[in-house]
């Protein structure tokens, strides 16, 4: 959703904006076209259309390896601190990649996704990854 990328925004504003989303739908658009708020996700193109949900989905989570400096994580941790959140330890930022696979066997899907992780999705010099099948 919107909040997924708005890492530097202040929280109060994000809350307001979500209320506002509905307001906008009612005032400036025809009702017939109201979609769920999920539609505005920046990652919407990766979401599975309902008619294809029979396929297996692999979720590949890519993180910087332990020991590799994560300046984004540091900056987020700092920003959270200035917003008054206390007790925050290390913050790490990673990527979540959702793959829709034409495969019904979960183990085969996992093997395929792991190969994709090794060959492209993660750079094993600096990153590690894990695969989850749903």
């Amino acid at each position: 959703m919107l909040t997924g990328r708005r890492l530097t925004g202040d929280h109060a504003k994000i809350g307001q904006s979500q209320q506002g989303v509905d307001a906008a739908v009612h005032t400036s658009r025809p009702r017939a076209r109201i979609d769920s708020p999920a539609r505005i996700s920046p990652f919407r193109s990766l979401e599975i259309p309902a008619e294809r949900a029979a396929h297996v989905k692999a979720i590949v989570t890519v993180m910087l390896k332990e020991g590799v400096l994560d300046p984004q994580g540091k900056a987020i941790g700092h920003a959270l601190g200035t917003l008054g959140f206390s007790g925050i330890g290390e913050v790490r930022v990673g990527k979540r990649i959702e793959l829709e696979l034409a495969e019904t066997n979960p183990e085969a899907a996992r093997a395929a996704a792991e190969e994709m992780g090794r060959k492209l999705l993660a750079n094993l010099v600096i990153e590690s990854f894990k695969v989850e099948i749903v």
């Binding site: 590799v68 400096l69 300046p71 984004q72 900056a75 750079n123 010099v125 600096i126």
Partner: peptide
Amino acid sequence: LTEAGLLPGALLRNAGL
């Protein structure tokens, strides 16, 4: 070249982001 393994290491986000 680093991604291809022709040179070692990797290039990360600039420290100042």
